[in-house]
Design a protein around this nucleic acid. Structure first.
Length: 581
RNA sequence: UGCCUCAUGGUGUAACGGUAGCACAGCAGACUCUGGAUCUGCUUGUUUAGGUUCAAAUCCUAAUGAGGCAACCA
């Protein structure tokens, strides 16, 4: 107990005095601990190597971002290496387009890989290993038809039965495996199985298929192969070949781990583990829980359905939880990485609130987004004591959080647009904005007092009339009087009409998939996209695609790649500002 | 129901046998030329039942609840 307390104290001192701000705010999650312990105990060559192994058959989503940042983050934290590997062992849905999209998204996230690898480049090696396994009686070609195998496999609660081909002569298996690879047999007619244990309570160990026949060209390997390795066989080989020390994956692979280790054991017997500084590198698979987000569906299948049914405009629709969707919506790589860090890593099947992601982007954009004024739901203000032809220019800081960002000029004139919400003819309690007789500040410009309104035939407010105090130019009055509200505005004659796309949650309920009997379609938010024309200050005319702005008092916006018919920028609402009303 | 895994405020996550902390959300207040930001304070938690121990969120047993596994997908 004594020594322990001493250690504790020592550690506390270390934390406070010697470890700078690097890891003090990151949690000691179990993966970090496992790798830390392994490094302390001695990893071959002292080098941690991780990998992210997507199958190039679709777009990456925010759930993948979690896996990427964990694998990338651990490699970086332990001064190791991070590989990006295309796990392309099933040609049916893979393509080079997906490879490119995946690379682009990961690059954008800022997770640089040290090596880029195609699993398919190792098809020869995998075949050789399969042959070696047949020769050592660890694998056999099974001709039990695919549909019949379930009778041999058994059920989880009862053992299976051995295949009649299990102990066939090695030469027979060798010949048939060769035929499989060369396309001389039908799909489903035979397969290569690992010979493990048909009585195992773990189904994955009941002679799993390691090669199956697929008469399908591979997007890279062409027609070279007619048999392809299964994930459970290929993955540990890929990891071993690359010298991966820690193979970090999501929780559903937990039950596969004994099989993963079985393959690694075979590779060790065959002396195929790579040697680093004299030691074989034996990869270790560890599993963490997937990311689940409220008001979101993450499954690739369902996202595909949304695209196909045109519920969204594409995989990069700003409402999609894809990385490309978030990018177009205006999320920054930093905000997504921060989110992944804040979500943490555990084995618990959690459901993270979308509000956390919102908080992460706001936090980042608050620091970096250029401030501009724009009015989305306009009503006209007429300043009766301001000359009709006059105009003034007021100086407005580009970002109050960053003085180095400088300032710009905003034109002001007799007629202005303000938000309809900022006016109430009959104010409710605590309404400090525009209402007859109440003075407010027009941001950066002056103090203004509403005197009366004009209404249209239906009784709607058509124009708000009032007066300004010329002595308050710039926003403050020499007499130092205070106003309780400051509102944004845009000069009518200088206004730039722009398209704004107001995005909101795709689903109206926190768990669209909670009820298996209900289609998530039932919960699609009909208002997830509202398009409007806003009046923006002219400085926004030159906004470039991808640029981030805060429309003051409203929300953060990002310039879309699209332009409107007039060639003017289109703004996507990333996230609203927090509002306490 | 066989095997594996998990369980800490509303949400997510720390605490590694010795003071249950952080973030998000929520609620107050201060400040403010954004009802933003910032600052301060507050509310809310160890699934249950036994056991080990001077001491249990932590170790053991059981219960309960949740997730995963029975593709020739990954």
């Amino acid at each position: 107990m004594g020594p322990q307390n001493t250690d504790r104290h020592h550690l506390a001192c270390l934390t406070m005095n010697e470890i700078p701000n690097t890891s003090s705010d990151t949690s000691r999650h179990f993966i970090r601990q496992i790798i830390g312990d392994d490094v302390a105990a001695g990893v071959p060559g002292g080098k941690v190597v991780t990998r992210f192994p997507p199958e190039p058959n679709g777009w990456l989503h925010i759930g993948h971002a979690k896996a990427i940042t964990i694998n990338f983050g651990m490699a970086r934290e332990f001064n190791g290496a991070f590989n990006l590997r295309m796990d392309d062992t099933n040609p049916s849905k893979e393509s080079e387009d997906f490879v490119n999209a995946i690379q682009r998204d990961i690059e954008w996230l800022g997770c640089k890989w040290d090596n880029f690898i195609y699993a398919s480049d190792a098809f020869d090696t995998m075949r050789d290993i399969a042959v070696a396994l047949i020769k050592s009686c660890h694998a056999y070609v099974c001709e039990v038809p695919q549909e019949e195998w379930k009778n041999f496999r058994g059920v989880p609660s009862a053992p299976g039965t051995e295949s009649p081909f299990r102990n066939r002569p090695v030469d027979e298996s060798l010949a048939r495996f060769d035929a499989m690879c060369r396309g001389e047999c039908d799909e489903g007619a035979m397969c290569l199985r690992a010979k493990i244990d048909m009585t195992s309570p773990n189904i994955h160990l009941r002679d799993p298929v390691i090669y199956r026949v697929l008469h399908m060209p591979h997007y890279r390997a062409g027609k070279t192969w007619s048999a392809y390795p299964m994930y459970d066989f290929a993955h540990p080989i890929e990891d071993a070949l690359e010298g991966i020390t820690h193979s970090l994956c999501s929780i559903e692979f937990e039950v596969h781990r004994p099989l993963y280790d079985w393959v690694i054991d075979r590779l060790a017997e065959l002396n195929l583990l790579i040697i680093r500084n004299g030691e074989p590198v034996r990869p270790k698979q560890r599993e963490f829980a997937r990311l689940n987000l409220t008001h979101t569906v993450m499954s690739k299948r369902y996202l595909l359905q949304l695209v196909q049914e045109k519920k969204v405009t594409g995989w990069d629709d700003p409402r999609m939880p894809t990385i490309s969707g978030f990018r177009r919506r205006g999320f920054t790589p930093e905000s997504i990485r921060d989110f992944c860090e804040r979500v943490g890593v555990s084995k618990y099947k959690s459901l993270t609130e979308l509000a956390l992601l919102d908080s992460c982007v706001r936090d980042d954009l608050n620091r970096r987004a250029t401030r501009r004024m724009a009015v989305i739901n306009p009503v006209k203000v007429v300043i009766d004591n301001f000359p009709a032809d006059a105009e003034e220019f007021f100086d407005a800081p580009n970002n109050p959080e960053d003085p180095a960002a400088g300032s710009h000029q905003v034109p002001f004139s007799r007629e202005l647009w303000i938000e309809r919400d900022d006016f109430m003819e009959v104010p409710e309690k605590k309404f400090f904005r525009v209402t007859p007789g109440q003075e407010v500040r027009l941001r950066y410009a002056c103090l203004f007092k509403c005197t009366h309104v004009e209404k249209d035939a239906e009784g709607n407010v058509a124009e708000i009339h009032g007066t300004w105090d010329p002595a308050s130019r710039g926003g403050t009055s020499p007499d130092g009087r205070k106003v309780k509200a400051t509102i944004h505005w845009v000069s009518v004659k200088h206004a730039l009409p722009v398209e704004v796309r107001l995005y909101d949650k795709l689903f109206t309920v926190p768990e669209p998939q909670a009820d298996p009997d209900r289609d998530p379609h039932d919960f699609l938010n009909p208002n997830s996209l509202v398009t409007r024309t806003a009046f923006a200050e002219p400085a926004l005319a030159g906004a470039a695609p991808g640029e981030h702005f805060q429309f003051e008092r409203l929300a953060y916006f990002c310039v879309d790649p699209d332009r409107d018919a007039e060639g003017r920028p289109v703004f996507n609402r990333t996230v609203t500002l927090k509002s306490s009303t």
